[in-house]
Amino acid sequence: MWIYEKSLERPVKISRPDPAFAKLVITQYGGPDGELSASLRYLNQRYSMPTDKAKALLTDIGTEELAHMEMIAALVYKLIEGADPKDMEAAGWGGQYAQHNHGLFWTDANGVPWSAKYIACLGDPITDLAENMAAEQKARTTYEHLIDLTDDPCVKDTLRFLWQREVVHFQRFGECLNDVQEHMSKMNTWCGYEMRK
């Protein structure tokens, strides 16, 4: 159950429309290290976490990632606002216009559609938390690349906020891993199986 707030986590502003950059930043909407992948990965893995604290953390961060997906959606939508078919084509995004017009769709920067192959759930909490820490680093690096690719200070500001959230999430997943490893080391069971000691 979620409570929906009718405002973005943080306001999204742009200086000017830029369909060419929209084509690139869409990867944080539906790319392998984007916000949809992140939210579904965490909200799905929470069930097999061994402690309530770990479950709560994954639910919290997964929920925040949904809010980030909303911010990226708002950003992309603003960047293509007012762009006509020719503008989209000139920006290298004629395919987007042909299939979706100004509607959003989950793809990476190369147009590859989102796939569940981007996320994993092994059911081993240490393995899954390690995956999440890697995911946060990949998202951090992707934001760094995207910030390099735009000159718009407002867009940079939005992306820098999302970049910093990846750093914070890495710290939280790391602390969670500390906790879970300690918890597992005290148990006689591993993922439900009795361990021989």
Binding site: A130, Q164, R165, Q171, G174, L177, N178, Q181
Partner: peptide
């Protein structure tokens, strides 16, 4: 333990103002 990853625990000693935090992302 060897072959395990650890992250240093964060000390909650200082905080930005809420406005500053929203601007910076932490």
């Amino acid at each position: 333990m060897l072959a395990h990853a650890y992250v240093p625990w964060q000390c909650y000693d200082e905080a930005f103002s809420p406005q500053e935090a929203l601007k910076k992302g932490t």
